[in-house]
Design a protein around this nucleic acid. Structure first.
Lengths: 205, 205
DNA sequence: AGTGTGACCATTAACGTGATTGGTCATAAT
DNA sequence: ATTATGACCAATCACGTTAATGGTCACACT
């Protein structure tokens, strides 16, 4: 099952339009090949055979196009996380899978699609909406795991759920956030495992 | 009590020498005023009235001078941390003080001496020896707190001490590491407090 | 209405070049 | 031996200039 993160991105003009799809497709290819910065809007226009001005009928800005592509990436990451969690057993297992999958999927993106990863870094360091939405969805998934663990008695119930969710997410930041992750690579996978252990200990009833 | 972090930094020539002190003093002032990058070695030479070549009798490189200054900064941070911990009551209190002090002291450096903070960022992102030593000393302090907590029965004793120390340090990274901290500013101080809470929960016996 | 563009503008990036920079060394005075 | 330097080099930086870029708009065609 694929996530369709309704892009509240800065688009304009008709939402369903073959030209919009062409733009996105061209952007996906060009960004992945040449990188976000080195790809110009004129490049995209040439690629799809329309004028640059026409592209701006569909996207408010180049960043909006970047956000669309970045959205696809984080959708992929989120889907992997959700799937891994779905295959987990108890809440403890799910939490382990959650943490491990988000990190490994992000690292894999870094190594297989460096150029796309750069967009994610861009987006994260400039706080693009698409990243905010991604982290919110991740936290939603985390909260589900926590709720389940609380119901089954695996996790403690005293700490407010919100606080637990946030603090765990903060603790995982060095392994989830693309900007931080690049700097944490040399610590992987041990550091991630050990922090997961710490988090699970903190959840003990 | 001040820390004298024996600089294994890339110095050369006599360790005790008035000229070395003059260089460091000039560097401290110039770096703080104009920044590390904009300060040239010739500037320092002019400042102390000697030739540039002479400076290289005492320091292997400009970076070594930067490391010396950076070392002073992190010594200051460490001293604050140690002092705060010393004033703490039980291990729980000490851990809270430890986390809070390191962060607030680093943030204060960021705001009061932006230019010096830049050196710290430089040093951290390029993994200078001086930063490695700093984090090791911080972890040493943390380990002492953990040991005390384990002895008094405040903290659990099952998890290997090394792992506990490391995982806690990882969790605090976004609030300790100057590179990360800049990106975590908008989360302060709540995130820090909540992560500390998580860490303490993980330490519950 | 919807589709499509060339001409245009302010801002930014790329470029070449000449000056600086970090760093060394042979040498000199003490 | 210690103190001290000017001359020197390769690599990098600052710089003005030029070209390209993101973005808009009036307009044309269907």
């Amino acid at each position: 099952m694929k996530t369709q993160s309704k892009g509240i991105a800065a688009t304009r003009g008709p939402a369903e339009h073959s030209v919009r799809d062409q733009i996105v497709k061209a952007a996906r290819e060009c960004f992945a090949h040449y990188g976000y910065d080195k790809t110009t809007v004129s490049d995209l226009a040439r690629e799809i055979g329309f004028s640059k001005a026409y592209i701006y009928r569909f996207f408010e800005s180049k960043q909006a196009i970047g956000a669309a592509i970045c959205g696809e990436c984080v959708d992929g990451l989120f889907d992997q996380a959700r799937e891994a969690v779905g295959q987990g057993g108890d809440a403890t297992d799910k939490l382990r899978r959650f943490a491990r999958t988000v990190t490994t999927a992000t690292v894999e993106l870094l190594f297989t699609d460096r150029k796309l990863y750069e967009i994610a870094v861009h987006a994260s360091s400039e706080n693009w909406e698409v990243v905010r939405a991604y982290t919110e969805r991740l936290q939603g998934l985390l909260e589900e795991i926590l709720k389940e663990g609380r119901e089954t008695g695996e996790f403690e119930r005293k700490t407010p759920l919100d606080e637990t969710r946030r603090s765990i997410f903060y603790a995982f930041k060095p392994f989830f956030d693309p900007v931080f992750l690049e700097r944490s690579l040399d610590l992987l996978p041990d550091a991630q495992t050990e922090v997961t252990g710490l988090v699970l200990r903190s959840l003990a009833p």
